Amino acid sequence: METLTFRFEHGQRRLKAAPELVGVVSSGNLEVLIENAPLNGACAIEVKTAARGFGTIWEAVMTDFQQRWQLADTRISINDMGATPAVVSLRLDQAVEAMVEEGA
Rank of each mutant, 00 (worst) to 15 (best):
G23C: 03
F65G: 03
G23Y: 03
G28K: 05
L71W: 08
V96W: 00
R75C: 11
P85L: 05
D93Y: 02
A72E: 03
F6W: 03
R68L: 11
L92D: 06
A86W: 03
V24H: 13
C43P: 03
R52F: 14
T56D: 15
W58S: 00
V87F: 03
G103K: 04
A44F: 07
D64V: 10
G11H: 06
T3E: 15
V47G: 01
I57K: 13
T84H: 09
A86P: 00
S77V: 12
E35M: 04
R75F: 14
A51D: 13
V24S: 14
T74Q: 01
A17L: 03
E46H: 08
W69T: 05
E97Y: 06
E46A: 14
L90N: 11
L33T: 06
P19V: 02
F65R: 01
A44E: 15
V22P: 03
F54D: 09
F8P: 02
V87M: 11
E35P: 00
E20D: 12
T63A: 15
Q12Y: 09
S77K: 12
A42C: 06
L39T: 03
G82Y: 05
L71I: 07
Q70G: 09
T56C: 12
V22K: 09
E97A: 15
F6D: 07
F8W: 09
V96T: 13
V32S: 02
G103W: 05
E59S: 12
Q94A: 08
G55R: 12
P85A: 07
E9Y: 10
T74L: 03
A18K: 11
L90C: 10
A60T: 12
V32M: 02
I57M: 14
V87T: 12
H10C: 08
E20T: 13
W69P: 01
W69K: 02
I76R: 03
R75Q: 15
L4T: 04
E102R: 12
T56K: 15
E101G: 08
E102K: 12
F8D: 04
L39V: 01
V87K: 11
D64A: 15
M81E: 09
V24R: 11
M99G: 06
V87P: 01
L15W: 01
N29F: 07
V25H: 09
H10V: 11
E9K: 15
I34R: 00
F8R: 06
M99K: 05
G55E: 14
L15H: 01
F65I: 05
E97S: 14
W58H: 13
M1C: 10
A37L: 01
V100A: 07
P19L: 06
V100G: 07
W69I: 04
